[in-house]
Design a protein around this nucleic acid. Structure first.
Ligand SMILES: [Mn+2]
Ligand SMILES: [Mn+2]
Ligand SMILES: [Zn+2]
Ligand SMILES: [Zn+2]
Lengths: 138, 138
DNA sequence: ATCTTTTTGCAACAAAGTTGCATGCTAGTT
DNA sequence: AACTAGCATGCAACTTTGTTGCAAAAAGAT
């Protein structure tokens, strides 16, 4: 794990620091998506709030994590697959949000279907979010 | 227009007030989705910020508007179709967000496709957001 | 016109996110 | 191992966004 974390940071030309290691670890351990608030809670008083914001921003730009659209105004983040890089994401998978426990899960094996749009629209990225009950809550 | 606005409010058992009329008018006039901030700007100093929040909340509950998921942390709202009612929305259409002008458009004629989920997941609602270039920006 | 209920505005607050800057740390160089 | 340039962090101060309680105002019913 420790080695994996270092490798991810190095591969993205990021210096290896305490906060980056810890936040990346949280993503690797979590089986769902994380909000800024989740991370703050789990790191406790260890890092400044601003550092968490900046770390997430950096990870997002580097393509280490991707953001997930939600209908309330929370922003969720999850780890990208290996083949994402700066400016080039390949996370065209469906996201599932459990309406009971609130957990958000990347369905890495479910590809977002493409739809036919009215003439004039030039699509670049398709995103799909399914709400419902997860395995544990149904 | 005036008559249409009154009718929508009456049909939903809402008293007809200045702020509700104005905000509903903004939605009817707009060809895209609106964020809370857009509405505040367009109404100017006319209504209190709190009133705008509460009006949107009320419209949402009554099924007059629906919210649209986005990847940043803005919440967007757009008018529902006629057959939406309290607790029963039928807005299973795709949403398009222009990455250039930022406008968000309801593609009322494009139905969200259903996907096959892994066993265990019980889907309730499917939402799809397409990012790209709109008619005016391509 | 009067009364009841709902809606609004205000104030005060809480939560979320941003920015500038001095200090500390990382990683590469000697 | 010590040095140093550049990057990352923490702190403070601030802005923006959203929430809550309550009294005044407006709406709808009688
Ligand atoms: Mn994902
Ligand atoms: Mn819509
Ligand atoms: Zn669940
Ligand atoms: Zn556009």
């Amino acid at each position: 794990m420790e080695a994996q974390i270092d490798e991810i940071l190095r591969k993205n030309q990021l210096s290896v620091t305490g906060s980056r290691k810890r936040i990346l670890e949280l993503f690797l351990m979590s089986n769902g998506a994380l909000a800024h608030g989740d991370i703050e809670k789990k790191t406790g008083e260890k890092f400044d709030r601003v550092t968490v914001y900046r770390t997430l921003q950096t990870f997002l730009e580097k393509g280490i994590i991707h953001s997930i659209p939600t209908s309330d105004n929370s922003v969720l983040y999850a780890l990208c697959k290996d083949d994402c890089s700066e400016g080039h994401h390949h996370d065209n998978h469906v996201h599932f949000i459990c309406s009971d426990c609130g957990k958000t899960i990347c369905l890495a094996d479910v590809t977002v279907p493409q739809v036919k749009l009215p003439v004039g629209f030039l699509p670049q990225e398709y995103q799909m979010v399914v709400t419902g009950l997860c395995k544990d809550c149904r």
